[in-house]
Design a protein around this nucleic acid. Structure first.
Length: 496
RNA sequence: GGGCCGUUAGCUCAGCCGGUAGAGCAGUGGAUUUUUAAUCCAUUGGUCGCGCGUUCGAAUCGCGCACGGCCCA
């Protein structure tokens, strides 16, 4: 796109613009529309040609001219606005002198125009506007992609999302649904008593997850800062402060590779509720997702990548160990509970092991390798090992595991939640273990957050919390195979 | 990080056993007062991703790089 000035098509359009500048304001902002394409079709689309002729309705529309068919003294054009498209029927003799030949016929597809006229039906039955005045509002200098095949090159679709949005209704739809999903969640949580908050994105100590952070620097304070990897520890500070039901929907950042499921910045919902446990949140999640799918698509059945998912049925629930046994017939419970045998098992599965890995960590490695992608139907996996859950409350009966769950659908992790660890001494001990792992070379291990411990020492009520990956949820609801399809401007390498 | 595939006109794509690059759409000129991938006639448009090599000759073969896609870790 750097050679735009050398492109003939652009040069021609620049020439058109020069001529427009001579004859007046080439970027007029005086025109006001009173109707959107989709509303007109909704309101008048079912009416007959004769009905519309007998009761003429005058409207003003504006948008981008997507196609144009000139047939001598009459033309058709399709106008696209934020709601959809509507056809214009334009006759030379209905317009002011010269507008048709000196104006309209010299405009280009992609130009932004405004038009007024009477709602009509063509002989072929398409609702249209019989135009009586038409005005160029913005000159488009870049030619649009081809009208039939559109823009299909994935790289261009991501790098120049604006062109993708102009050309592909599917893309527009995906992002409208994304907006609806967030809107629904927001109002759902507010309806059950949550308040929305915003916590820092720049952290002195990156916490709340095990991940590599991005670093930045505050110049006047001469201080290194980290972009947050999760809002968790700040949200729980708010629970200590008495905000007993809080949520935040916003970006977190993780300095990791890119994939169909990973973008360095991504959107998470995190919510925390005092006097609740992880089972309460599983129930809330199940109900919220059920209502969400109904609100978005009018059905609990979701088709994702040719598989149909029915969210009206109760979601499956099983423990980590149960799920490993279910999907690995050759593995026994005893195998998973002895360090010697589980290490051998992991090695047989080709899982690279560090000396520091305990039984719990290896169980999760085996789970991720052999179970995760097979969890197609909506499933809560529970009882994650304490070793891999440094912020979660230990199970009262079995301190080897925590009262934690992750939610899977379509073989993909969507959510992670647990009863929160609110014992400050236990939490301090867990942090110390993380720091030891960090010192041993685990770059993803957590820091010791003293202020967070202090907050817990003031007393955090028994609380449950959860994070839901909004991007992945939207992928599922929009049948998108990669996360780039649900992020407006996904991260890309610099092009040359 | 590894494997495979791709990168040619504004867009969508052919061409690839080496011989000076093509189509459709868009654009331009002409015809056309109900078309809708409008139609008909004519026509413009290219550093074939970048670099190096092989060769008399490279879009085409080889190597390297960049970017993208899919799969794997």
């Amino acid at each position: 796109m750097s050679d735009t000035d050398e492109n003939d098509l652009v040069a021609q359009r620049r020439q058109h613009l020069q001529e427009l500048r001579k004859s007046g304001n080439a970027f007029s902002n005086k025109f006001r529309r009173d109707s959107l394409a989709a509303d007109l079709i909704e309101q008048y689309g079912e009416k007959s040609k004769e009905e519309l002729e007998q009761n003429p309705v005058k409207v003003a529309v504006a948008g981008r001219m997507m196609t144009r068919r000139i047939m001598g003294k009459a033309s058709f054009a399709h106008l696209q606005d934020m709601s959809g498209q509507i056809q214009l029927y334009i006759r030379r003799d209905d317009l002011a002198e010269g507008v048709y030949n000196e104006g309209f016929k010299k405009w280009d597809s992609g130009d932004i125009i405004g038009a007024t006229g009477i709602v009509m039906k063509t002989n072929k039955g398409e609702l249209s506007i019989h135009v009586d005045s038409i005005l160029l509002l913005t000159k488009s200098l870049q030619p649009l992609p081809e009208k039939f095949h559109g823009l299909t090159d994935q790289e261009t679709r991501y790098r120049q999302r604006y062109v993708d949005l102009i050309m592909n209704e599917e893309t527009r739809n995906t992002f409208k649904i994304r907006s609806q999903v967030i809107e629904f969640i927001r109002s759902y949580l507010k309806d059950v008593g949550y308040i929305e908050v915003e916590t820092p994105m720049m952290h002195v100590i990156p916490g709340g997850a095990t991940a590599r952070p991005f670093m930045t620097h505050h110049n006047s304070l001469d201080m290194d800062l980290f972009l947050r990897i999760a809002p968790e520890l700040y949200l729980k500070r708010l629970v200590v402060g008495g905000f007993e039901k809080v949520f935040e929907i916003n970006r977190s950042f993780r300095n990791e590779g890119l994939s169909a499921r990973h973008n360095p910045e991504f959107t998470m919902l995190e919510f925390y509720q005092a006097y609740a446990d992880y089972e309460d949140l599983m129930n809330l999640t199940e109900e919220m997702l059920r209502k969400l799918t109904l609100a978005i698509g009018g059905s609990n059945e979701i088709v994702y990548q040719a598989e149909t998912y029915d969210l009206s049925r109760p979601f499956d629930r099983m423990t980590v160990l149960e799920s490993i046994l279910k999907y690995n017939e050759s593995i026994s419970l005893d195998d998973l509970q002895s360090l010697d045998t589980i290490r051998k098992l992991a090695q047989q599965l080709g899982i690279p092991l560090e000396d520091s890995y305990g039984i719990g960590k290896i169980q999760i490695e085996i789970f991720e390798k052999t179970v995760e992608t097979r969890l197609l139907a909506p499933t809560f996996i529970t009882q994650y090992p304490t070793e891999v859950s440094p912020l979660a409350r230990k199970n009262d009966d079995d301190p080897f595991v925590t009262d934690r769950f992750e939610f899977f659908i379509g073989g993909r992790e969507i959510a992670n939640g647990f009863s929160e660890l609110n014992d400050p001494e236990d939490q301090a001990e867990r942090f110390r273990k993380q720091v030891a792992e960090k010192d041993a070379g685990d770059i993803e291990a957590m820091h010791f957050d003293e202020d967070y411990i202090t907050a817990l020492e003031y007393g955090m009520p028994p609380t449950a919390g959860e994070g839901i990956g909004i991007d992945r949820l939207v992928m599922f609801l929009t049948d998108s195979p990669t996360i780039r399809d649900v992020i407006l401007f996904p991260h890309m390498r610099n092009k040359s």
